[in-house]
Design a protein around this nucleic acid. Structure first.
Length: 360
DNA sequence: TATATTTGACCTGT
DNA sequence: ACAGGTCAAATATA
């Protein structure tokens, strides 16, 4: 169906993106070569870069319109206000009979991991992932042999962090835990939290005694390389669930060096723009190569590593998905993972794959 | 005493 | 009506 046109559009889009990339490289050179840097040149290059990507975007938009009814993601992202409209309006919240309970936040990002606990370690509780969690509930789940435990961030009361997780022991293998994270941390639990080290054997004690604070010896460990965001090549997809739906949220990232330059130029983007950039980038911050719903982990650091590294991104996404209630997003740690959002509107899910070639 | 966990009740979405 | 998710009082622990 209209494959010829689609191909043409992609080709055009690719040309524009390629052009943008070249201009960005030129801009980069300008920054590197301080002797010849002129404001006019930079301005010219930036204008052209933006123009190129604008054109590519408009192509994407026209594509997305066709695909809209096929893609809930695109549909959701289509409106700049859809993040809030997807959730309850504030009045809904205030109208709740019980304080702020049961806010509707369907758009909370959600992802799952399976974590294996070695038998005989005494570790039965949810695994340490570098964050402090407080258990707030447990529920027997239909069809599951084991109850599901509900945790929320310890710093919810103090910092308004709305991250939660659910831990469900596997029916087949009791050493296997399905951990479902919902929302991202907006709290500051210490910068060392980038080290998502799992310490088995201590976990249960930690949970029971409530000392959810990451222990010093856990914190100081280095995050593994593979868990660090690859800034220059962060053109990946992320599998996320939103309200039972697994949706692929495409992302688009510029090489860090370019963006850093652009960003450091400071105020070239407004606060809002930056905010949006973070929003988009946050979708690429939990990068899992898996295409399945869960990423299977065994004794490996979590994606939470990425959270710590890109705390900015976390908070921004929380702004995005929990826009109604995140009272104190953290926006003060400059992190080198600036993904240009290009407005998270109207991305063809196949888009990242196409661009990938250009940024090799 | 402060903080975390447990657990029955309650609320919401389907 | 039911299942899943959350609240909050009671309880446990340091």
């Amino acid at each position: 169906m209209e494959k010829g046109t689609e191909f043409e559009q992609k080709k055009l889009m690719n040309i524009e993106l390629k052009h943008g990339q070249e201009l960005a490289n030129q801009l980069r050179q300008q920054f590197l070569d301080t002797t010849q840097t002129s404001k006019e040149t930079c301005d010219f290059l930036l204008t052209n870069i933006l123009s190129s990507y604008e054109k590519a975007l408009s192509i994407l938009k026209s594509n997305a319109l066709k695909l809209e009814h096929h893609s809930p993601v695109i549909s959701m992202l289509n409106s700049p206000h859809s993040f809030t409209s997807d959730t309850s309006p504030p009045s809904d919240i205030s109208d709740q009979p019980h304080k702020n309970v049961f806010r509707k936040r369907k758009a909370v990002p959600q992802w799952s991991e399976q974590v294996q606990v070695p038998l005989g370690t005494g570790a039965e509780g949810p695994l340490a992932d570098g964050y402090s969690w407080r258990k707030y509930g447990q529920k027997d789940i239909l069809g599951a042999n084991f109850p599901r435990a509900y945790y929320r961030c310890t710093y919810r009361p103090s910092q308004g962090c709305l991250a939660t997780k659910q831990v469900q022991k596997s029916d087949e293998d009791s050493s296997l835990h399905q951990v479902t994270y919902k929302g991202r941390h907006t709290c500051k639990q210490g910068s060392e939290l980038t080290a998502g080290v799992v310490v088995f054997g201590k976990e249960e004690k930690r949970q029971k005694k409530g000392s959810c604070e990451p222990k010093q010896e856990e914190r100081i460990q280095e995050p593994k390389v593979e868990n660090i965001i690859s800034f220059g090549t962060s053109l990946k997809t992320e599998e996320m669930e939103r309200s039972k739906e697994v949706e692929r949220l495409p992302s688009f990232s510029f090489p860090c060096t370019i963006l850093e330059s652009v960003y450091k130029k400071d105020h070239l983007f407004s606060e809002d723009t930056r905010e949006n950039n973070f929003i988009a980038s946050s979708y690429s911050s939990y990068i899992t190569p898996e295409t399945s719903e869960c990423s299977y982990l065994s004794l490996s650091p979590y994606h939470m590593d990425n959270f710590g590294i890109a705390q900015n991104l976390q908070s921004s996404e929380s702004d995005l998905t929990e826009i109604l209630s995140a009272p104190n997003s953290v926006t003060n740690s400059p992190i080198c993972d600036f993904d240009i959002s290009l407005d998270p509107v109207d991305f063809d899910p196949s888009f990242p794959l196409d661009i990938l070639e250009f940024f090799k």
